[in-house]
């Protein structure tokens, strides 16, 4: 390929170095013997040991994982519904407002979303804690799920759906037996995205959380303000590892499904 010139290679390599170097350095220094995160003093896993003995961090991690699991699951259902309404039903009352409400949270500064949800919870007298964070995260992440699923639905051959309906399947059955299996990879990656967004969020969680529901990012943030320690590096490394494993599993599942689908199609053609 002559188009892949030296300039192109250099810019891509430099770009990736910029994207990955800070994360790599952070992981390396989590194994540092010294308390300083900038001077290398030998390999050690002692920060991981002290991390697991830090009850506050462990509690926060547990809260975060529960919030993320619950909110990602509900957000995936709601987001898929929103995507279906946007793609399939081009005309219904208030569609403009609806699409606006789906896209706006994607770019809305988190301080505004967080503050407005907090004021809502206070106005209706809802005690802040686990449930308010979960509700807030559902609202934010369902929009991301909607966008991911929507892009899959747009490239979807609708004649298969129409065939099912013509043959007398109810819309509900058509959805679960025809549409959902086809869009499943997008729904799944939407779930993973929602899960990691929830795991990651600091600002909205800080606004909407209450006593007893401190999430891991809130805990990390309050410790970072006191100073950078290898223990935080260790916590971050574990989070990165968790997400990396999730992404790898997700991509393997997607790939296998894709292969399976291709095999099925070939088998179907061969059978005719």
């Amino acid at each position: 390929m002559t188009r892949w010139s030296r300039f192109n290679i250099v810019s891509v390599v430099l770009g990736f170095a910029f994207l990955y170097l800070p994360i790599v350095l952070l992981v390396i220094f989590s194994f540092n013997e010294s308390k300083l995160v900038t001077v290398w003093a030998g390999f050690s896993t002692k920060w991981y040991v002290s991390l697991f003995n830090n009850q506050g961090l462990m509690d926060a991690a547990w809260v975060t994982i529960r919030v993320a699991l619950l909110s990602a699951t509900v957000a995936t259902v709601l987001g898929t519904m929103a995507a279906l309404s946007l793609v399939r039903y081009t005309r219904f009352r208030g569609r403009m407002l609806f699409s606006g409400m789906v896209y706006a949270p994607l770019v809305m500064p988190e301080v505004i979303t967080g503050l407005s949800l907090l004021l809502l919870f206070v106005a209706v007298g809802f005690d802040r804690g686990f449930w308010t964070v979960t509700l807030a995260h559902i609202t934010l992440t369902m929009c991301f799920v909607a966008v991911v699923v929507q892009s899959r639905l747009l490239s979807f051959d609708r004649s298969i759906e129409e065939a099912a309906l013509d043959l007398g399947a109810t819309p509900l059955r058509t959805f679960f037996e025809v549409t959902l299996p086809i869009i499943a990879p997008a729904v799944f990656s939407g779930w993973v995205l929602a899960f990691t967004l929830s795991l990651d969020d600091l600002v909205i969680a800080s606004f909407t959380s209450g006593p007893g529901a401190t999430t891991l990012p809130m805990k990390i943030y309050s410790q970072v303000r006191l100073g950078v320690t290898p223990e935080i590096n260790a916590a971050c490394t574990l989070l990165i590892a968790l997400v990396a494993i999730g992404v790898v599993i997700a991509s393997i599942v997607t790939k296998q499904r894709e292969l399976q689908r291709q095999r099925d199609e070939q088998a179907a053609f061969a059978g005719r």
Partner: peptide
Amino acid sequence: LMLVILPFWTSFLIRVYAWIAI
């Protein structure tokens, strides 16, 4: 493409935090 998206999956807070030490 995957390599560009991957850092996006790691925590925003962590990525900002990493720069303090640098």
